[in-house]
């Protein structure tokens, strides 16, 4: 049984949990997962999906908003999908998380050097340069991306896109304990 993580690192306003869902890499599997969330009224905050090291499997990293539904029920319903092999609830404190953001920001004249300074501080990259805008990519923890986005907002964000987070357990024994082997009925 997956334990419900009640210690929320984001405070009460953001009741988010990360589920790492290992699925068989078959057509329609993402539709099954997202359809289940829609049908049962669960909220997905973000979702990232890609094949794993074994091409037969994909890993879906779902950040769920559990303000309305107990996480336990979501996990159990997910387990019932035949293609779902394993679900790990990742405790943010015992997880390494990464997310990528691309952002086009206004940066003309004098402001350009200020923006590139931020790019250097955040170890971001300038991907494209326009006459009065820059397109930047940055990766890191969701918190870092939030901070960067906040700072860029002052200059005027033209467009931005985040990937949603991917996560794996930290390499200590504790984090592995909460992994639950797939079962269904």
């Amino acid at each position: 049984m997956t334990t419900i993580n009640t210690n929320n690192p984001y405070g009460d306003s953001r009741r988010h949990h990360i589920l790492s869902v290992l699925v068989q890499n078959r057509p329609g599997v993402l539709a099954r997962v997202s359809g289940l969330f829609a049908r049962r009224g669960y909220n997905i905050y973000s979702l990232a999906v890609a094949p794993t090291e074994d091409a037969d499997y994909s890993r879906i990293t779902i950040v769920v908003d559990i303000s309305a539904t107990p996480l336990e029920q979501i996990v159990k319903q997910l387990f019932k999908l035949i293609d779902v092999v394993r679900i790990t609830e990742l405790d943010p404190r015992k997880t390494v998380e990464r997310e990528l953001m691309m952002v086009t920001v206004k940066a003309d004249g004098d402001l350009r050097s200020q923006v590139t300074e931020l790019v250097a501080i955040f170890e971001a990259k300038v991907l494209a340069v326009g006459t009065d805008v820059l397109t930047i990519s940055v990766d890191g923890t969701p918190q870092k991306l939030d901070d960067f986005e906040e700072l860029l907002r002052e200059y005027g964000i033209v467009e931005s896109q985040r990937t949603g987070r991917v996560a794996l357990p930290r390499l200590d024994r504790e984090a592995r304990k909460s992994a639950t082997k797939g079962k269904a009925s």
């Binding site: 699925v23 068989q24 387990f79 999908l81 035949i82 082997k181 797939g182 079962k183 269904a184 009925s185």
Partner: peptide, 8 residues
Amino acid sequence: ALPGYRPT
């Protein structure tokens, strides 16, 4: 072929 399906 059904690694995710093991009813208890």
